[in-house]
Amino acid sequence: MARYLLRVNGERREVDVDGDTPLLWVLRDELGLTGVKYGCGVGLCGACTSHVDGAAARPCVRTAADSAQTRITTIEGLSRDGDHPVQRAWRELDVAQCGYCQPGQVMAAAALLARDPDPDDAAIEEALRDNVCRCGSYPRIRDAVRRASRIMREER
């Protein structure tokens, strides 16, 4: 066990864990950030997608030791009030069914739009390729990313 200083959702958080503990379990078990979802543990499903230094990343395949001094944003920290354009678009288009994969989908979409404000279908499909939705909300996800892009444009 060792102490690691993490920067999560704008706060400095200290955790006392083994260095090889996956960041996913640090966030969920130690910091109570349960919006970060466990789906596969091996980087294949995207349910835990969060932002590390502003880019989409998979906390299940990063360790606590890797994450010291990085800037981590989870779904809980994406916006103050749940009104990030991606979150609004997701609600407008009634995207979610069971909702379990959606925090990861939302974070992947937000990271995409941060670097490419007007992605075409190919860019959307590339960015969300490894975010699995077992309920089959993909058509609405695709539309909601486009809608979020429009909201961001209108409000710029």
Binding site: Y38, T74, A96
Partner: peptide, 19 residues
């Protein structure tokens, strides 16, 4: 009108069994 739980879903607040 969409899902009544949509805001909780997109903010990560929905409590699943695993939570």
């Amino acid at each position: 009108g969409g899902r009544v739980d949509a805001r909780d879903v997109v903010t990560g607040r929905t409590g699943y069994g695993i939570d």
